[in-house]
Amino acid sequence: MLFTHDTEATLQAAVALVNSSDDPGDPLGSVADLSAFLAHWTYTGRHDATPAELDAVRRLRSALKELLLAERDEAVDIVNDMLARAKALPQLQRHDSLDWHLHAIDPDRPLDERVVVETAMAMVDVIRSDEMSRLDRCAADDCDDVVLDLSRNRSRRYCSTTCGNREAVAAYRARQKA
């Protein structure tokens, strides 16, 4: 494992959130979808389950994408700003089936604030270990999603199997045409 479990889970959740879209098939199209997202990524704490909360979380997409794709020094500035604005206070906590891990914001704070702080805290680990290259844009020509590469050999290039398969088929057809 490259990062701690909570860091990996938070990074994966942030990438999933960033890669969700405002298109008609948005996986965060309803409050119920948000509740399912939170359950899937094991977010704990306050969840108001309101349209306002859903809108606040959906508005985070661009700021989180900027953070995930930033150069290392720029990411430091973004992380520090996010943590300062939230008045984050890192503390060790143990809950549910998880052993000691860091939380930096009270679980009763609004969900969008907690998502920002948790993502910023995960990025602290990425920055400190100089692993920013683990985050990149999808290599597919027609995709702008974020890729989180947690593989040992750093071989992940596509955000999804769909993009990888589409690119493989296009390359195959191009070879056949030539």
Score class of each variant (00 low, 15 high):
Ala104Ser: 15
Glu131Trp: 02
Ala104Phe: 07
Ala170Ile: 02
Glu118Lys: 10
Asn165Ser: 08
Thr161Phe: 05
Val126Met: 08
Ala139Ser: 11
Arg109Met: 06
Gln176Lys: 15
Ala122Pro: 12
Pro107Ala: 05
Arg128Gly: 06
Ala140Val: 03
His101Asn: 02
Arg137Phe: 03
Leu135Thr: 08
Ser129Gln: 15
Asp125Gln: 12
Arg134Cys: 03
Glu167Ser: 14
Pro110Arg: 14
Arg173Ala: 04
Asp144Gln: 02
Thr119Phe: 06
Ala122Cys: 10
Val147Asp: 01
Ala168Phe: 01
Ile105Met: 10
Val117His: 13
Ser133Asp: 13
Glu131Lys: 13
Met123Val: 04
Asp130Pro: 00
Arg157Trp: 09
Asp130Ser: 09
Asp106Phe: 05
Ala168Asn: 11
Leu135Val: 07
Val117Tyr: 13
Ser129Gly: 07
Ser151Glu: 06
Ile127Asn: 07
Ser129Asn: 11
Glu131Ser: 14
Leu111Ala: 11
Arg173Tyr: 08
Ala170Asp: 06
Arg109Tyr: 03
Ser151Leu: 03
Ala140Ser: 13
Thr162Phe: 13
Arg154Gln: 07
Ala170Leu: 07
Val117Cys: 14
Tyr158Met: 08
Thr119Asp: 07
Thr119Asn: 08
Cys163Leu: 11
Asp144Asn: 00
Asn153Gly: 13
Arg114Trp: 06
Arg175Phe: 07
Glu167Met: 14
Val146Gln: 05
Val169Gln: 01
Glu113Thr: 04
Val116Ser: 13
Asp136Trp: 01
Pro107Asn: 10
Gln176Glu: 14
Ser129Ala: 14
Pro110Phe: 09
Thr162Val: 14
Arg134Asn: 03
Val124Arg: 12
Glu118Pro: 00
Val169Pro: 01
Ala104Tyr: 08
Cys163Thr: 06
Thr161Pro: 05
Glu113Lys: 04
Asp136Ile: 00
Tyr158Trp: 15
Ala104Gly: 15
Arg156Met: 02
Ala174Leu: 14
Met121Gln: 13
Asp149Asn: 10
Val126Asp: 05
Leu102Pro: 08
Pro107Trp: 11
Arg152Lys: 14
Val117Gly: 12
Ala139Val: 04
Asp106Lys: 12
Leu111Pro: 12
Tyr158Gln: 09
Arg157Leu: 14
Cys143Trp: 12
Arg157Glu: 11
Asp125Tyr: 04
Met121Cys: 10
Cys143Ala: 04
Glu118Gln: 14
Ala120Gln: 11
Asp142His: 12
Arg114Ile: 09
Arg156Trp: 04
Met132Glu: 06
Arg175Ile: 07
Ile127Val: 12
Ser155Trp: 01
Ser129Pro: 02
Leu102Trp: 13
Tyr158Arg: 11
Val147Ser: 00
Glu131Cys: 09
Glu131Phe: 01
Ala170Pro: 01
Leu102Ser: 10
Asp142Ile: 03
Arg137Asp: 00
Cys163Ile: 02
Val124His: 01
Pro107Met: 11
Val115Glu: 01
Leu111Arg: 15
Ile105Cys: 05
Glu113Arg: 11
Arg134Thr: 04
Asn153Ile: 04
Met121Val: 14
Val146Trp: 07
Asp149Phe: 02
Ala174Ser: 15
